[in-house]
Design a protein around this nucleic acid. Structure first.
Length: 473
RNA sequence: GGCGCUGUGGCCGAGAGGCUUAGGCAGAGCACUGCAAAUGCUCGCACCCCGGUUCGAAUCCGGGCGGCGCCUCCA
């Protein structure tokens, strides 16, 4: 079994082989921090975090970089609108962003470079591009001359002859060619700016990722990921910058682009205003539910958003927790020694692991991998149904561990084995109810059950006594 | 106009030539239960349309039709 990823250039699956034995250098385009992230922004963060988790699971040593864009037109406009500095804006929404991804169980990146903290590297790269005559200077701004880079358009399969240039007017720009793009923008009055060989200014839109990835990874790295809309021009421009500056090609071995979250089939975006904030969904349904929803479709395919789909995901997550809770509860009455059937079931566990890996190996097919969890859930439930209290602790532990193992890759099921004991008063109520049930005092019994329900505790009467679980919010 | 993605049962969503009943959610019935909850079983035999290839196509080819994205704000 080997990991395969889809190559846009070849239009087929290719073997994933890192540049350097088992080390993976991975760069994911991060947010521009001028607002809270919405559900659509969250998709690449979640899916590529899952890719990272899976790569680690498969034994790779992953270095994960995700930048924060803290200076550009949008930042400046928004700061002006709010009457605060760009720095204040960036600080506020960087912090919010970090909170949001934490709530989604996204691991912090190994490096979180910010554009404004890498001006030096950016200037160095721009200088090199001028030196090599890939870039030209006009009135304190520096532009990349696309015609100088032979492979331009390769990544996104754009034919420069056929491209239709936007009707949007670039007012103060005297580029030689409409496809040329700014590496360095001369400062306008009142804008944040930095000193450079070409006068005061700030970085262009695309250079930060090239400069920062080069600073931390060198001229070549394994995976570059981001939303599909970034493929052109952002990533195309990065390729042009990085490869022209370093002379090394390809700068990136595997490109991973995720499809959009759509609202009524339309792209969700800040500019269309049809967005749902990530934090609102997390507050309402929980981070794991949002994650499960996101991973319920393949990451390259558009995924529609509606609260109904989030509810579907939360029901699915509940199903998964029901079985792990059930297993945990049985631990209290489990036997010490595995029966022959138990051993058989434990041995069969490897089959689920194999299918899980097979699914994820296939271009990170999370929907298929999730189906493996449901199959395991069903089979474990069935086994529990049939074996009663004869089940062994070994089997339960093995099964729970497997759920945790899969959950760790997908970023869900963190609450397995996290069951806390109940407050004393609630425990007393449960005992009182047991007593009432013995007396067949059903009304008192049901009353207590309702009370506990209102505390978020669900009771299950089983042949082995009453068991409780917390209802998933 | 160029490039790319996509069309699967009520909903979501994998699969990719002939056994996957994929899986999940919702619904119905049954079993279990004091009643529940949970769980299990059973059910709806789905693949946009038209041709073609093939012994056999949802899956390949051709042609339609529909939806979406990118073409310098955008994850």
């Amino acid at each position: 079994m080997s990991l395969k990823v889809y190559s846009g250039a070849k239009g087929e699956l290719v073997d994933f082989v890192p540049l350097e034995d088992n080390k993976v250098k991975m760069y994911v385009c991060g947010p521009t921090v001028y607002n809270y992230i919405h559900i659509g922004n969250a998709r690449p963060f979640i899916v590529f975090d899952t890719v990272r988790k899976y790569l680690k699971y498969r034994g790779y040593k992953v270095t994960y970089i995700q930048n924060i864009t803290d200076i550009d037109d949008k930042m400046i406009n928004k700061a002006n609108e709010l009457g605060i500095t760009v720095k204040e804006l960036a600080d506020k929404f960087s912090a919010a962003y970090l909170e949001d991804i934490k709530a989604l169980n996204i691991e912090t990146a190994d490096v979180i470079p910010k554009a404004t903290e890498h001006i030096e590297s950016i200037i160095t790269m721009v200088s090199k591009l001028i030196e090599k005559e890939y870039a030209y200077l006009i009135d304190g701004s520096v532009y990349y001359d696309v015609s100088k880079f032979a492979g331009y358009g390769k990544l996104s399969r754009q034919d420069m002859e056929e491209i239709q240039h936007g009707s949007r007017v670039d007012v103060d720009v005297e580029k030689r060619n409409p496809a040329d793009f700014a590496l360095w923008k001369a400062a306008k009055p009142g804008e944040p700016s930095w000193d450079s060989p070409w006068g005061k200014g700030r970085p262009g839109w695309h250079i930060e990722c090239s400069a920062m990835s080069a600073e931390y990874f060198g001229p070549q790295f394994d995976i570059h990921a981001g939303g599909i809309d970034l493929m052109f021009p952002h990533h195309e421009n990065e390729v042009a910058q990085s490869e022209a500056a370093s002379g090394v090609s390809p700068s990136v071995k595997y490109w991973l682009h995720n499809g959009f979250i759509t609202m009524d089939k339309e792209k969700m975006s800040k500019s269309l205003g049809n967005m749902v904030l990530c934090r609102d969904m997390v507050d309402k349904y929980g981070g794991e539910t949002v994650r499960l929803y996101m991973l319920s479709g393949h990451f390259r395919v558009p995924l529609n958003f509606s609260e109904d789909l989030i509810v579907q995901a939360s029901q699915g997550l509940k199903r998964l927790y029901n079985v792990t809770d059930r297993l945990e509860n049985m631990l209290e009455v489990a036997s010490a020694y595995p029966s022959d059937n138990d051993k058989k079931f434990m041995n069969s566990l490897q089959v689920y692991r194999d299918s899980f890996i097979e699914s994820m190996d296939n271009d990170f097919n999370t929907p298929q991998a999730i189906a493996v969890l449901y199959n395991l859930a069903k089979d474990a439930n069935m086994y529990l149904d049939n074996s009663g209290d004869k089940i062994s602790a070994d089997l339960i532990n093995h099964t729970l561990n497997l759920f945790s193992e899969f959950g760790a890759v997908l970023g869900i099921l963190r609450n397995i084995r996290k069951k806390e004991s109940l407050p004393e008063d609630l425990m007393l109520l449960i005992r009182e109810r047991e007593e009432a049930r013995r007396r067949k005092d059903w009304s008192r019994s049901d009353q207590i059950r309702d009370t506990l329900n209102s505390h978020g505790i669900r009771l299950n009467d089983t042949p082995y006594g009453v068991q409780w679980t917390k209802t998933v919010s």
